[in-house]
Design a protein around this nucleic acid. Structure first.
Lengths: 339, 339
DNA sequence: GAGTTATATGACAACGTCGACATTTTTCTA
DNA sequence: TAGAAAAATGTCGACGTTGTCATATAACTC
């Protein structure tokens, strides 16, 4: 392997001078710099991070630890956000997923330590509380899409499910809907309760009574193997005599079934029933016709800002373990009718 | 940081003996081993990979380089497969994505080299030909879900789109369908042509004429921003007098629109029209009612076997740059009616 | 132009680990 | 039980960098 020494020899300088050129340090003549850079190019020299780390004990590497990667497919945008940040800031990303096993999680923390990473991004693919298995380790950590269960030691960054559901509910109310159905997300998911709360509160504040709201459970059970009642529940809801004029559901995937249920009953969307989702899972929200009005989860930004937050934590801004929250943007399409 | 030396001191042995214990080398008394292990536990020692790499120039790290991470959400299962393999075999994964920029791709190759990774997994999120920007680098590389455009230097591993579409077509033919509609995937995707070819060939071999086949383009344009004709095309197809009794489409996402088009026309699935997809993108295939019969892309296994293949390449089995292909499994659900 | 300061470069050690080789201790063999 | 072989442990240096400190050269100052 071509090292700093071969370059130094080729350029006729000391290895330290080569090091200076590589790291853009001052006190190198333009002429020397050029000679060294030429040697670097000629020899195809590439710095050895391992050696650098050994010397300076700063790896410039962040670790991502996730649970599953694919439960809600678009949530991988979190990872994309992190990677884009890393790329822009010259950091390297080490990635591992636990698959839900806490033994494996412990191993991953060990692995991270053995690579002397600077910080950890603890990411979950659906919003929930977690309990990191870091042991007595003290690597700076930022939680993305989740929050610590027990202590408040780690800063976190999450989507604002409450605000998203609030906006969506207001949107329906503003358009004259007074009887609204709500099909609940799996209660395991932290977002489920928040979205429902926002819906109830917003509708209540507006003057609707509990009897105007038809609230039903759409899914339950362990993530990835849940029981799915959405189609049945939606069908039932839409067969009532005083059926809701609008249905809101826990997420966009569920709305597929709501659409199909409505259409199977001969109802037109949005003329006979308006529908809104949640997530802006575009594979679905754009495939449905009419296209789905929904609230977009800020996955990409969670990643981007999470990485940035971690960076400042690593740099020593220990200010306060802040718990940031990112807005969900309402995406208006054509699945809602004004009454 | 606690190093091998502190451990040696604590255990009252030489650092080399500690090294032996860590690496499970022979010629260490049981008694010594225990003393060293105790010291390791007490001090919380964790080996420093960087130092190890510097010494032995073997990083035990694979790099994953991808284009986009989220175009077809379930394709992230490739990454999961790779990670699971890595986890089981004590390797570390470095991950980066190009976002389609070849400048960035070149940077990533550099980054990989600077970490002295042992091999690269070149992964694309939809099947296509690629042209790695590795420059004159010679890191062992395996392609997953794609193949080299120009030369045949790299081994690759891909899904068998042809066989999947063949199985699906036969499945329809076996159930008495003689007029079949086909809505094509974006022609940019390598799978598109293969799936269509298989459909045409299989139907032809069975005795159907081109006039029995209604073949239409569903999408085109750059990935992620394609024009989408599926709904219109499906509607049109189903309004014909001698409409097809079954519709096959390029992938599962597209079938959402086929379902909706059929239902909007008052057609029942599968009584009036049978529908099959491709991919087994479960968020969709299980949400549709009736649930969708489709061919499952072996994403997870692509990752798993790709990693294993790379490992053997790294180990020096330079046999031949093999181009493996993995079967797509037909997943039978309830969207097809026997005639 | 002597003295001072800023700029430019180099020598060398150290980071943590492991490989090569040396040395000591134990076990076996005849 | 001496001698040989095997097992157990240790010494030391090298891997590729960069930090520390020293030195040399150039650029100022009065």
């Amino acid at each position: 392997m071509v090292s700093i020494i071969s370059v130094a020899k080729a350029a006729g300088v000391s290895n330290k001078t080569v090091s200076r050129v590589i790291n853009g340090e001052p006190y190198v003549t333009e002429e020397t710099r050029e000679r060294v850079e030429k040697a670097i190019r000629d020899l195809g020299y590439i710095p050895n991070m391992a050696a650098r780390l050994i010397r300076s004990s700063r790896s410039n590497t962040f670790g991502i630890i996730t649970d599953y990667v694919s439960t809600t497919p678009y949530s991988v945008d979190i990872v994309r956000g992190i990677q884009d940040w890393a790329n822009a800031n010259g950091k390297t990303i080490l990635m591992a997923n636990t698959g839900g096993s806490s033994k494996r999680e412990a191993d991953i923390w060990k692995m991270f330590q053995s690579h002397r990473i600077d910080g950890v991004l603890y990411v979950t693919m659906y919003r929930r509380t977690v309990d990191p298995e870091a042991g007595d380790v003290r690597i700076p950590t930022v939680m993305i899409n989740c929050r610590p269960q027990t202590n408040e030691l780690f800063p976190s960054i999450e989507p604002d499910d409450y605000q998203g559901a609030q906006d969506l509910t207001r949107y329906l109310l503003d358009r004259g809907h007074r009887k609204i159905g709500y099909i609940r997300l799996n209660p395991i998911l932290l977002g489920a309760q928040l979205r429902l709360d926002a819906f109830r509160k917003t509708a209540g504040d507006f003057g609707l009574h509990e009897s105007d709201l038809s609230i039903r459970l759409g899914m339950e059970g362990p993530v990835g193997a849940e029981k799915n009642y959405v189609f049945a529940v939606a069908t039932e809801m839409l067969q009532q005599k005083d059926r809701p004029t609008a249905i809101m559901s826990g997420n966009d995937e569920m709305t597929i079934q709501v659409y199909i249920a409505a259409m199977a009953l001969g109802l037109r969307i949005p003329e006979d029933v308006s529908i809104v989702g949640f997530d802006d899972f575009r594979t679905v929200s754009l495939a449905l016709k009419p296209e789905l009005t929904t609230a977009a989860l800020p996955y990409y930004d969670l990643g981007l800002e999470g990485a940035d937050l971690l960076n400042s934590v690593v740099a020593g801004n220990k200010a306060r373990p802040s718990n940031r929250v990112l807005r969900c943007k309402l995406v208006e399409r054509t699945s809602v009718q004004s009454l």
